[in-house]
């Protein structure tokens, strides 16, 4: 019991140091700023994916769809309707919630592989829509969007602030009675009914929250790249969320964040070193998942606990 207060302070220090480092990133140059900004957004999307996966027990294989919904909504609102940043962003959040509600409604009655396949199918379906529909720019997507404040450095702080705020909200949810109901459904959906929970509703709630924050990440990413293309909704992008989460550890709240950073940096290094970079990360990631079945962060916390 003694170690408990110690552990909290260790975590608090780690988080404080992390935030300070993140705040200093723009000093390390444009490349690093861009890399960390992308890593933050991937991490946010993976963390929201993990609300559904690690906390609620549903493996979505189409979560990049919501990234795309957030991104396309923002891009369309700005380029086609001439809305400002804030209004477009709010619309992106709303649309992510609406898509989450409708698609979630159709998916949550199924579980396991059926749920995974359904979400995968929806993801691919909307990828198809984005490729074919001229209004969304077809296979080129929408590009040439202006970046807020015109500088990468200032926009980086927007991303940092919104990502940290989103992570904070998601964390609070996992530490609430709602989060507990997610975990109860994950552990034992059968018994959950017998404590009065409407299992489908609990799953749908998790699905919608998860979609919203994936949409937030997607919307912010559009302005980082100043463009969006259909590939952001492709299943390989959804698989990245899954991978990053397994990498960091699905049973630890910050697991996907750690996984997101490892993945982003690994990809960056490998990409500049060799044209076979995909193979390199593939091998490294398979090794990590094999040897750290609870993810890197999960493994680290277990190791600390044992000492």
């Amino acid at each position: 019991m003694q170690s408990e207060s110690e552990e909290v302070s260790f975590e608090q220090i780690a988080i404080a140091v992390g935030i300070i480092l993140l705040a200093l990133v723009p000093l390390a140059g444009r490349h690093m700023t861009h890399l960390v900004a992308s890593a933050l957004l991937l991490s946010l999307a993976a963390t929201s994916f993990n609300l559904l996966f690690g906390y609620t027990g549903l493996l979505s294989f189409g979560h990049a769809l919501f990234w795309g919904v957030g991104g396309y909504t923002l891009a369309v609102m700005m380029s086609r309707f001439g809305l400002g940043y804030v209004e477009s962003f709010v619309m992106a959040v709303i649309m992510s919630a609406v898509f989450g509600a409708v698609i979630g409604f159709l998916c949550v009655r199924h579980t396991r592989i059926y749920f995974a396949i359904l979400t995968l199918a929806f993801g691919q379906m909307f990828y198809g829509v984005a490729v074919k529909w001229d209004f969304l720019g077809g296979s080129d997507g929408i590009y040439g969007l202006p970046r807020p404040f015109n500088t990468l450095e200032l926009y980086y702080y927007v991303i940092l602030a919104i990502t940290l705020a989103s992570l904070f909200i998601l964390y609070k949810i996992t530490r609430s009675s709602l989060g507990l109901s997610f975990m109860a459904v994950r552990d034992n959906a059968f018994r959950a009914k017998f404590i009065g929970l409407d299992v489908s509703r609990v799953r749908l709630t998790s699905f919608i929250i998860s979609s919203i924050f994936s949409g937030v990440a997607g919307a912010l990413y559009v302005l980082l790249e100043t463009a969006i293309s259909p590939e952001t909704m492709l299943w390989t992008h959804s698989a990245e969320f899954v991978f990053v989460t397994l990498l960091g550890g699905p049973r630890v709240f910050l697991g996907p964040l750690v996984g997101g950073f490892i993945y982003s940096f690994l990809a960056d290094v490998a990409m500049s070193a060799t044209e076979y970079w995909l193979l390199v990360i593939g091998v490294v990631l398979v090794a990590i998942v094999l040897f750290f079945p609870h993810g890197v962060l999960g493994y680290f916390l277990k190791w600390r606990e044992k000492r």
Binding site: R175, S176, L178, M183, G196, L197
Partner: peptide, 22 residues
Amino acid sequence: ENLLVAIHSISGTISMTKRLDD
């Protein structure tokens, strides 16, 4: 937590603002 989830469920206090250590 096994009991807490049941208690929150029956009292209708499943919510994202209801803290686990309520």
